[in-house]
Protein backbone atom coordinates (compact mmCIF):
# COMPACT_ATOMS: atom_id res chain seq x y z
CA UNK A 1 0.00 0.00 0.00
CA UNK A 2 1.07 3.56 -0.74
CA UNK A 3 2.72 5.55 2.02
CA UNK A 4 0.54 8.54 2.74
CA UNK A 5 2.54 10.01 5.60
CA UNK A 6 6.21 9.41 6.40
CA UNK A 7 7.63 10.97 9.54
CA UNK A 8 11.31 10.54 10.23
CA UNK A 9 13.41 11.47 13.29
CA UNK A 10 11.11 14.35 14.18
CA UNK A 11 12.56 16.34 17.08
CA UNK A 12 11.51 19.55 18.74
CA UNK A 13 12.48 20.92 22.14
CA UNK A 14 10.57 23.79 23.72
CA UNK A 15 12.17 26.31 26.06
CA UNK A 16 10.85 24.29 29.07
CA UNK A 17 12.83 21.29 27.72
CA UNK A 18 9.64 19.39 26.89
CA UNK A 19 8.90 18.37 23.33
CA UNK A 20 9.37 15.33 21.10
CA UNK A 21 12.45 13.28 20.35
CA UNK A 22 13.23 11.32 17.19
CA UNK A 23 9.66 10.34 16.42
CA UNK A 24 9.43 8.19 13.28
CA UNK A 25 6.48 6.35 11.78
CA UNK A 26 4.71 5.71 8.50
CA UNK A 27 1.00 5.64 7.72
CA UNK A 28 -0.29 3.78 4.68
CA UNK A 29 -3.39 4.50 2.61
CA UNK A 30 -6.65 3.40 4.21
CA UNK A 31 -5.20 2.95 7.69
CA UNK A 32 -6.73 4.47 10.78
CA UNK A 33 -3.64 5.22 12.82
CA UNK A 34 -4.15 6.05 16.46
CA UNK A 35 -1.72 8.12 18.47
CA UNK A 36 -2.18 7.20 22.09
CA UNK A 37 -0.44 8.88 24.98
CA UNK A 38 -1.01 10.63 28.29
CA UNK A 39 -1.56 14.39 28.46
CA UNK A 40 1.62 16.25 27.59
CA UNK A 41 3.19 13.28 25.77
CA UNK A 42 3.72 15.37 22.63
CA UNK A 43 0.81 14.20 20.46
CA UNK A 44 -0.33 17.71 19.55
CA UNK A 45 3.25 18.82 18.90
CA UNK A 46 3.72 16.01 16.36
CA UNK A 47 0.43 16.89 14.67
CA UNK A 48 1.25 20.61 14.63
CA UNK A 49 4.61 19.94 12.99
CA UNK A 50 3.08 17.61 10.39
CA UNK A 51 0.48 20.23 9.44
CA UNK A 52 2.98 23.10 9.40
CA UNK A 53 1.64 24.95 12.46
CA UNK A 54 4.97 24.44 14.23
CA UNK A 55 8.51 23.97 12.98
CA UNK A 56 10.66 20.98 13.90
CA UNK A 57 14.24 21.35 15.11
CA UNK A 58 15.19 18.24 13.14
CA UNK A 59 13.61 15.49 11.10
CA UNK A 60 11.60 15.19 7.92
CA UNK A 61 7.98 14.81 6.89
CA UNK A 62 6.58 13.58 3.61
CA UNK A 63 2.89 13.80 2.86
CA UNK A 64 1.84 11.99 -0.33
CA UNK A 65 5.53 12.07 -1.24
CA UNK A 66 5.82 15.86 -0.89
CA UNK A 67 8.31 17.25 1.62
CA UNK A 68 6.73 19.47 4.23
CA UNK A 69 7.42 22.42 4.73
CA UNK A 70 9.28 22.82 1.41
CA UNK A 71 6.30 21.72 -0.71
CA UNK A 72 3.67 22.80 1.78
CA UNK A 73 0.84 23.60 -0.62
CA UNK A 74 1.21 20.34 -2.55
CA UNK A 75 1.59 18.36 0.66
CA UNK A 76 -1.55 19.85 2.23
CA UNK A 77 -3.74 19.71 -0.89
CA UNK A 78 -5.39 16.43 0.11
CA UNK A 79 -5.10 16.86 3.88
CA UNK A 80 -7.82 17.84 6.32
CA UNK A 81 -6.95 18.59 9.92
CA UNK A 82 -8.48 19.43 13.25
CA UNK A 83 -5.76 20.39 15.72
CA UNK A 84 -6.59 21.17 19.36
CA UNK A 85 -9.97 22.66 20.27
CA UNK A 86 -10.92 24.59 17.14
CA UNK A 87 -11.20 28.39 17.34
CA UNK A 88 -13.53 30.37 15.09
CA UNK A 89 -14.50 33.93 14.25
CA UNK A 90 -17.28 34.57 16.76
CA UNK A 91 -19.14 37.05 14.55
CA UNK A 92 -19.35 34.69 11.55
CA UNK A 93 -21.62 31.66 11.17
CA UNK A 94 -20.78 28.05 10.29
CA UNK A 95 -21.69 28.41 6.62
CA UNK A 96 -19.50 31.51 6.24
CA UNK A 97 -16.56 29.66 7.79
CA UNK A 98 -16.97 26.77 5.39
CA UNK A 99 -17.42 29.10 2.40
CA UNK A 100 -14.26 31.00 3.28
CA UNK A 101 -12.31 27.75 3.58
CA UNK A 102 -13.83 26.49 0.30
CA UNK A 103 -12.35 29.50 -1.53
CA UNK A 104 -8.93 27.94 -1.02
CA UNK A 105 -9.98 24.72 -2.80
CA UNK A 106 -10.89 26.04 -6.25
CA UNK A 107 -11.93 22.63 -7.61
CA UNK A 108 -14.42 21.96 -4.83
CA UNK A 109 -18.11 21.76 -5.82
CA UNK A 110 -20.31 24.40 -4.17
CA UNK A 111 -22.64 21.71 -2.86
CA UNK A 112 -19.82 20.34 -0.68
CA UNK A 113 -20.52 22.96 2.01
CA UNK A 114 -24.08 21.61 2.39
CA UNK A 115 -22.79 18.03 2.36
CA UNK A 116 -20.38 18.53 5.26
CA UNK A 117 -22.92 20.56 7.23
CA UNK A 118 -25.28 17.59 6.93
CA UNK A 119 -22.49 15.12 7.72
CA UNK A 120 -21.76 16.75 11.09
CA UNK A 121 -25.38 17.65 11.85
CA UNK A 122 -25.09 21.43 11.78
CA UNK A 123 -27.59 22.23 8.97
CA UNK A 124 -30.20 23.65 11.32
CA UNK A 125 -27.76 26.06 13.02
CA UNK A 126 -25.59 26.95 10.04
CA UNK A 127 -26.77 30.60 9.98
CA UNK A 128 -26.22 31.18 13.71
CA UNK A 129 -23.18 33.11 14.81
CA UNK A 130 -20.44 31.01 16.37
CA UNK A 131 -20.58 32.96 19.63
CA UNK A 132 -23.81 31.08 20.42
CA UNK A 133 -22.29 27.64 19.76
CA UNK A 134 -21.57 25.08 22.47
CA UNK A 135 -18.16 23.37 22.67
CA UNK A 136 -19.63 20.29 20.98
CA UNK A 137 -21.06 22.33 18.11
CA UNK A 138 -17.69 24.00 17.60
CA UNK A 139 -16.06 20.59 17.54
CA UNK A 140 -18.55 19.46 14.89
CA UNK A 141 -17.73 22.54 12.82
CA UNK A 142 -14.04 21.76 13.24
CA UNK A 143 -14.72 18.26 11.87
CA UNK A 144 -16.71 19.77 8.98
CA UNK A 145 -13.77 22.03 8.11
CA UNK A 146 -11.38 19.08 8.27
CA UNK A 147 -13.55 17.05 5.88
CA UNK A 148 -14.56 19.92 3.58
CA UNK A 149 -12.00 19.34 0.83
CA UNK A 150 -12.75 15.60 0.55
CA UNK A 151 -9.29 14.91 1.97
CA UNK A 152 -7.45 11.63 1.49
CA UNK A 153 -5.59 12.06 4.79
CA UNK A 154 -7.35 13.41 7.88
CA UNK A 155 -5.47 14.39 11.04
CA UNK A 156 -7.65 14.71 14.11
CA UNK A 157 -6.28 15.80 17.47
CA UNK A 158 -8.57 14.78 20.34
CA UNK A 159 -11.53 14.88 17.93
CA UNK A 160 -14.27 13.93 20.40
CA UNK A 161 -13.46 16.64 22.94
CA UNK A 162 -16.73 18.28 23.91
CA UNK A 163 -18.89 15.87 21.90
CA UNK A 164 -21.87 14.25 23.61
CA UNK A 165 -22.53 10.48 23.54
CA UNK A 166 -24.42 10.69 20.26
CA UNK A 167 -21.71 12.87 18.75
CA UNK A 168 -19.01 10.37 19.74
CA UNK A 169 -20.97 7.48 18.22
CA UNK A 170 -21.56 9.49 15.02
CA UNK A 171 -17.85 10.28 14.88
CA UNK A 172 -16.81 6.63 15.19
CA UNK A 173 -19.32 5.63 12.53
CA UNK A 174 -18.09 8.37 10.19
CA UNK A 175 -14.43 7.38 10.55
CA UNK A 176 -15.16 3.69 9.92
CA UNK A 177 -17.35 4.49 6.92
CA UNK A 178 -14.91 6.93 5.27
CA UNK A 179 -11.97 4.57 5.82
CA UNK A 180 -13.82 1.51 4.48
CA UNK A 181 -15.77 3.03 1.60
CA UNK A 182 -13.57 5.90 0.41
CA UNK A 183 -10.13 4.66 1.53
CA UNK A 184 -9.64 7.85 3.56
CA UNK A 185 -6.58 7.58 5.81
CA UNK A 186 -6.96 8.80 9.38
CA UNK A 187 -4.38 9.85 11.93
CA UNK A 188 -6.16 10.32 15.24
CA UNK A 189 -4.60 11.34 18.52
CA UNK A 190 -6.27 10.85 21.84
CA UNK A 191 -5.56 10.13 25.49
CA UNK A 192 -8.78 8.09 25.68
CA UNK A 193 -7.95 4.40 25.20
CA UNK A 194 -11.50 3.31 24.29
CA UNK A 195 -11.74 5.90 21.58
CA UNK A 196 -8.53 4.74 19.92
CA UNK A 197 -9.39 1.06 20.32
CA UNK A 198 -12.84 1.51 18.80
CA UNK A 199 -11.71 2.91 15.44
CA UNK A 200 -7.98 2.44 14.89
CA UNK A 201 -6.34 -0.32 12.89
CA UNK A 202 -2.79 0.59 13.97
CA UNK A 203 -1.57 2.32 17.08
CA UNK A 204 1.49 4.26 18.16
CA UNK A 205 2.15 4.87 21.84
CA UNK A 206 3.78 8.20 22.66
CA UNK A 207 5.27 8.85 26.07
CA UNK A 208 7.34 11.86 27.14
CA UNK A 209 8.00 12.85 23.57
CA UNK A 210 9.11 9.40 22.38
CA UNK A 211 7.24 6.86 20.29
CA UNK A 212 7.77 3.86 22.55
CA UNK A 213 5.66 1.23 20.70
CA UNK A 214 3.90 0.91 17.39
CA UNK A 215 1.92 -1.96 15.91
CA UNK A 216 -1.41 -3.28 14.70
CA UNK A 217 -4.26 -2.64 17.12
CA UNK A 218 -5.18 -6.32 17.21
CA UNK A 219 -1.62 -7.43 18.07
CA UNK A 220 -1.21 -4.86 20.84
CA UNK A 221 -4.55 -5.80 22.39
CA UNK A 222 -3.62 -9.51 22.23
CA UNK A 223 -0.40 -8.86 24.17
CA UNK A 224 -2.13 -7.80 27.39
CA UNK A 225 -5.76 -8.71 26.87
CA UNK A 226 -6.93 -5.16 26.39
CA UNK A 227 -5.53 -1.93 25.00
CA UNK A 228 -5.90 -0.29 28.41
CA UNK A 229 -3.77 -3.01 30.05
CA UNK A 230 -1.25 -2.71 27.25
CA UNK A 231 -1.14 1.07 27.68
CA UNK A 232 -0.67 0.88 31.45
CA UNK A 233 1.97 -1.82 31.17
CA UNK A 234 3.99 0.07 28.55
CA UNK A 235 3.78 3.36 30.46
CA UNK A 236 4.83 1.63 33.68
CA UNK A 237 7.76 0.01 31.89
CA UNK A 238 8.79 3.35 30.33
CA UNK A 239 8.63 5.02 33.76
CA UNK A 240 10.77 2.26 35.21
CA UNK A 241 13.35 2.66 32.47
CA UNK A 242 13.41 6.40 33.08
CA UNK A 243 14.00 5.86 36.83
CA UNK A 244 16.71 3.22 36.37
CA UNK A 245 18.40 5.22 33.67
Amino acid sequence: MENVLEVSQLTKTYSNQRGIREVSFTIRRGEVFGFLGPNGAGKTTVMKIITGLARADRGSIKIFGFEQPDKFEKAMEKVGALIETPAFYEHLNARQHLQMAARLYPDLEKSRVDEVLALVGLESVQQERIKGYSTGMKQRLGLALALLSKPELVLLDEPTNGLDIEGRADFRQMVRQLAAEEQVTFFISSHIVEEIQSVCTRIGLLYEGRLIREGSAADLVDEQGSLEQFFLSEISQAKGEAVHG
Binding site: T51, G52, L53, F72, E73, K74, A75, M76, E77, V79, A81, I83, E84, P86, A87, F88, Y89, H97, A101, L104, Y105, L145
Partner: peptide, 13 residues
Protein backbone atom coordinates in the same frame (compact mmCIF):
# COMPACT_ATOMS: atom_id res chain seq x y z
CA UNK B 1 -6.04 30.83 17.75
CA UNK B 2 -8.12 31.58 14.64
CA UNK B 3 -4.82 31.91 12.75
CA UNK B 4 -4.61 28.08 12.79
CA UNK B 5 -7.80 27.98 10.77
CA UNK B 6 -6.09 29.43 7.70
CA UNK B 7 -2.63 27.95 8.26
CA UNK B 8 -4.08 24.43 8.01
CA UNK B 9 -5.21 25.11 4.42
CA UNK B 10 -3.04 24.48 1.35
CA UNK B 11 -1.75 28.03 1.19
CA UNK B 12 1.88 28.92 1.87
CA UNK B 13 2.54 31.13 4.89
Amino acid sequence: RTMNWILLRPIAR
